[in-house]
Structure formats: structure tokens, C-alpha cells
């Protein structure tokens, strides 16, 4: 390991993790190659593209959508997305009258199988504290203003039940393919802190769906 420049001591935490890994490897409890594979999976392979595929399918296929809202886990698994954080998935649908938003006030429960690992803000105190108390204010932080008569439902995740928001299909998307629709589905639209993009917004913000 030589990522630290000469004379620059690694931070205490970095050193602590290095010490722990070295002890666990020495005791035969972990294999560094398996750790690398885990990191590669969650850094590069599992992410919000999975959830976007689920949403695009639901927008395109009303029978799939009905099954998805009735049994999230099994219907998500039809697309091959399974895993231990996807065992009990509930999908909640945004409509012109109801806006759903997901938080984990106690920790960071999040549907890894469809969204990957959560962003820092989702795990940080301000979102966890405020989402359940003043969701409209939080949405305003994200640049989303909801009409007063729209009901907001905030879902507090647990390690047993995790939620995926099915955002509203944006206007101007008639006739788009599933792949084209999936490109409009951002990670945050599936947490419920923003709307899915319109085709014009997606063109102006090509990285948004990453």
C-alpha cells in the first residue's frame, strides 16, 4: 500500500482500518480479493440504474405496475434484482395528489438492490431529523415546490421494510422506449426528493441519471 506520500502519515482512521484488515486477513477471516469484489459490486455494478429499469417497466406495462405495487420484492425480482436488502420491498406511487418520500430516521436503511448505496445526505443528520417533521421544507432544499393540496407521505424505512418511490411519468414522454424512459429516472426521484426528469431536462442535465 503506497497511496500515502512520503512523510504524510495516514489519518488515524485510515490506519485503524488498515490494521483491522491486516488482522482479519492474518486470522484467515477475510480474503482481500473478496473485499475488492464487494467494493467493485457496490461501487460499479449495483446502483440506481436498477431502480430506473423497474420504474421504466412500470410506466410502460400496466400489468407489471399493478404487480409491483401489490408485491414489490417479487416484481422487482422479475428483472433479476434480488438481495438481502431487497427482501421486503414496498413500492409507493406518486400521483398528482400524493407525493411519497423515503427516509431512515434511525440509521440509513435503503434498498441497495435497486438504488445501490445511499448518498451521504440520506445518511446525514439534517435529512434524517427533518424529513419527518417538515418534509415540504426538505423538498424545498431539493428545489421541489409542491402545491399545498398535495398530500405528502413520508415513509420511515427499517431493516425489515425498505421503500422505492414510483415517480410520476413526466409529460412529453409518450412513445418513448423503456430505455429512453429509464434515462429520465434519477436516483433522487426514487427516494422521493425530486421528480423524474422531462426529456428536455434530461438533455440539459445528461449526468443526472447517473
Amino acid at each position: 500500500m503506497s497511496e500515502h506520500r512520503h512523510g504524510t502519515p495516514p489519518s488515524d482512521t485510515a490506519l485503524r482500518v488498515k490494521a483491522l484488515e491486516s488482522l482479519l486477513v492474518e486470522k484467515g477471516l477475510v480474503d482481500p480479493a473478496a473485499l475488492d469484489a464487494l467494493i467493485d459490486t457496490y461501487e460499479n455494478k449495483v446502483g440506481p440504474r436498477n431502480g430506473a429499469a423497474v420504474v421504466a417497466r412500470a410506466w410502460s406495462d400496466s400489468e407489471y405496475k399493478a404487480r409491483l405495487l401489490a408485491d414489490g420484492s417479487a416484481t422487482i425480482a422479475e428483472l433479476g434484482f434480488t438481495g438481502r436488502t431487497g427482501d421486503h420491498m414496498v413500492v409507493v406511487e406518486n400521483t398528482p395528489r400524493v407525493h411519497n418520500m423515503v427516509v431512515c430516521t434511525l440509521c440509513s436503511c435503503y434498498p441497495w438492490t435497486v438504488l445501490g448505496l445511499p448518498p451521504v445526505w440520506y445518511k446525514a443528520s439534517p435529512y434524517r431529523a427533518r424529513a419527518v417533521k417538515e418534509p415540504r421544507g426538505v423538498l424545498r432544499d431539493f428545489g421541489v415546490e409542491l402545491a399545498e393540496d398535495v398530500e405528502i407521505r413520508v415513509w420511515d424505512s427499517t431493516s425489515e421494510i425498505r421503500y422505492l418511490v414510483l415517480p410520476e411519468r413526466p409529460p412529453g414522454t409518450e412513445g418513448l422506449s423503456e430505455a429512453e424512459l429509464a434515462a429520465l429516472v434519477t436516483r433522487d426521484s426514487m427516494i422521493g426528493t425530486e421528480r423524474a426528469l422531462t426529456p428536455d431536462e434530461a438533455r440539459a442535465k445528461p449526468e443526472a441519471a447517473e
Binding site: 489519518s11 482500518v17 488498515k18 483491522l20 464487494l38 467494493i39 457496490y42 439534517p126
Partner: peptide, 24 residues
């Protein structure tokens, strides 16, 4: 706790030790 703060283009992990702590 103040407003929700978001980073632009936030990476999944911010440092190598975070990757290792996660995987361990």
C-alpha cells in the same frame, strides 16, 4: 441540524478507508 447539504457529483466512497471499512 440545519439544511440538507448535497454534494455535486458525490462519489460512492470518499476515501479508500471507507471502501475497506464497508467491505470488511
Amino acid at each position: 441540524f440545519g439544511p440538507v447539504e448535497r454534494e455535486a457529483d458525490a462519489p460512492i466512497f470518499h476515501d479508500e478507508w471507507e471502501r475497506r471499512a464497508f467491505a470488511l
